[in-house]
Amino acid sequence: MIKAALNGHYGSDVTGAVGTVTLDGGDVKLKASITDACFVNGPSLNGLTLSVEKPASFTIDYNFPNKDVRFQFMNTVRVMERPLNLTYTHWKGENRTALDGTFLIDSANKVSACYGFHSDNDCMLKYSYTHDGLTTVEPSYDFGKNAWDFAVSRRIYGNDVVRASYRSSTKVLGLDWTRTSSLNGSFKISAAVNLAEESKIPTLSAESTLNFDL
């Protein structure tokens, strides 16, 4: 089966598009992603990424513009009869490695951590609590920036999610509204205000994704 997706981002700061074609060969999926950079100055390999993926096991990406390979390996282990999801990622060209882990305490509580091996302080810790399956609260702490982040989201009208967030390191307050459809794709409208600026003029953006079966 071949699936295609088209994602467009429109905003006052950045505007662009990404197209993805996925060939499902059973256990392994082949994926090609292109951005509008492939066609700005005529057809080129700029913005092209090829991927080989086995879900919940591994992903290998090759980025043509950066001539970089990314290896990602996933595994799940049991700790005190609860799942711990681990993801190991290595960027060969950048010589950068990261380890992500998510520990599911129960259906409503989980703790996540991300550690970058290239820096002693590159570590982020996040706690997530979901109340009644509708409201999610996510405080997090970035040890590298010595800063707290906070986000709260609420599911409304079935597939609509409203999310507010604040990053203390950048003093940016954000608000997103996302609607997802299993058939047609999704769209998101976002607004962000930098509270450190005197003008405090919000930036607005919209993002939409369309899914196709070929």
Rank of each mutant, 00 (worst) to 15 (best):
15 T>I: 13
176 D>C: 07
154 R>M: 07
165 S>R: 08
41 N>W: 08
38 C>T: 13
94 E>T: 11
147 A>K: 01
178 T>D: 02
192 A>H: 08
154 R>D: 02
65 P>M: 03
129 Y>Q: 09
30 L>D: 03
57 S>D: 12
76 T>A: 12
25 G>N: 14
80 M>L: 14
82 R>L: 10
149 D>V: 06
43 P>E: 09
4 A>F: 04
90 H>N: 10
200 K>M: 10
77 V>G: 02
113 A>I: 08
188 K>N: 12
80 M>H: 11
202 P>I: 04
39 F>D: 03
167 R>C: 12
171 K>S: 15
14 V>P: 00
152 V>L: 06
117 F>I: 05
202 P>D: 03
31 K>T: 15
117 F>E: 02
148 W>I: 11
207 E>L: 11
74 M>P: 02
186 S>R: 06
165 S>T: 11
33 S>L: 14
68 D>P: 01
11 G>D: 03
51 S>M: 09
70 R>I: 14
59 T>S: 15
37 A>N: 11
12 S>I: 08
93 G>H: 12
53 E>D: 10
22 T>S: 09
133 G>F: 10
81 E>Y: 12
42 G>T: 04
211 N>S: 10
34 I>S: 01
130 T>H: 00
141 Y>K: 02
41 N>H: 11
137 V>M: 08
2 I>Q: 05
109 N>I: 09
127 Y>L: 06
165 S>Y: 12
161 V>K: 04
48 L>M: 05
5 A>G: 04
179 R>D: 00
60 I>V: 14
117 F>R: 01
61 D>Q: 09
111 V>H: 01
45 L>T: 09
65 P>C: 03
199 S>M: 10
44 S>E: 06
